[in-house]
Computed example of a mutant assay.
Amino acid sequence: MEKFADELDMAQAHIEREIEMRVDAIQRHANLGLGRAYCLDCGALIPESRRRHVPNAKRCAHCQDRLERDRSPVRRCAA
């Protein structure tokens, strides 16, 4: 039974190290501040200036604006 417990402890330690390594890799990538190269919605190239100023940008400015308008609790009426 003790051998089984040791193997479980070793497996748990391995999983924890793997998670730490993945989190570190994600944080390193996030700290580059370049985000995605292409917009998730329209597939257009996201300008480097936007990726530099908006770390981890996932959408181009146009699609991000549209997403924020759609999610806004305030509905604009047509004038």
Rank of each mutant, 00 (worst) to 15 (best):
1 M>K: 03
2 E>W: 04
2 E>V: 03
3 K>Q: 09
3 K>W: 07
4 F>K: 06
4 F>I: 10
4 F>E: 13
5 A>Q: 06
5 A>R: 07
6 D>R: 01
9 D>Y: 04
9 D>P: 00
9 D>I: 04
11 A>R: 08
11 A>H: 04
12 Q>T: 15
14 H>G: 04
18 E>S: 14
19 I>N: 03
20 E>W: 02
22 R>N: 12
23 V>F: 00
23 V>H: 04
24 D>S: 15
26 I>P: 02
27 Q>V: 12
27 Q>R: 15
29 H>T: 15
29 H>M: 13
30 A>Q: 13
30 A>H: 14
31 N>P: 02
32 L>G: 12
33 G>L: 01
34 L>G: 08
34 L>S: 06
34 L>M: 14
35 G>L: 12
35 G>W: 04
36 R>A: 11
37 A>Y: 10
38 Y>M: 08
39 C>P: 06
40 L>Y: 04
41 D>N: 08
42 C>G: 08
42 C>N: 04
42 C>R: 07
43 G>P: 02
44 A>G: 04
44 A>Y: 06
45 L>G: 01
46 I>E: 01
46 I>L: 09
46 I>A: 02
46 I>V: 03
48 E>S: 07
48 E>A: 10
50 R>T: 00
50 R>S: 01
50 R>Q: 09
50 R>G: 01
51 R>N: 01
54 V>Y: 09
54 V>C: 03
54 V>R: 05
58 K>G: 14
58 K>V: 09
59 R>F: 06
59 R>I: 00
61 A>S: 10
61 A>H: 06
62 H>K: 15
62 H>Y: 09
63 C>Y: 06
63 C>G: 06
63 C>R: 04
65 D>C: 11
66 R>T: 12
66 R>Q: 13
68 E>W: 07
69 R>S: 10
69 R>Y: 11
71 R>W: 11
71 R>K: 14
72 S>A: 08
72 S>Y: 05
73 P>Q: 05
73 P>D: 01
74 V>C: 02
76 R>W: 05
76 R>P: 00
77 C>H: 14
77 C>E: 11
78 A>E: 13
79 A>K: 11
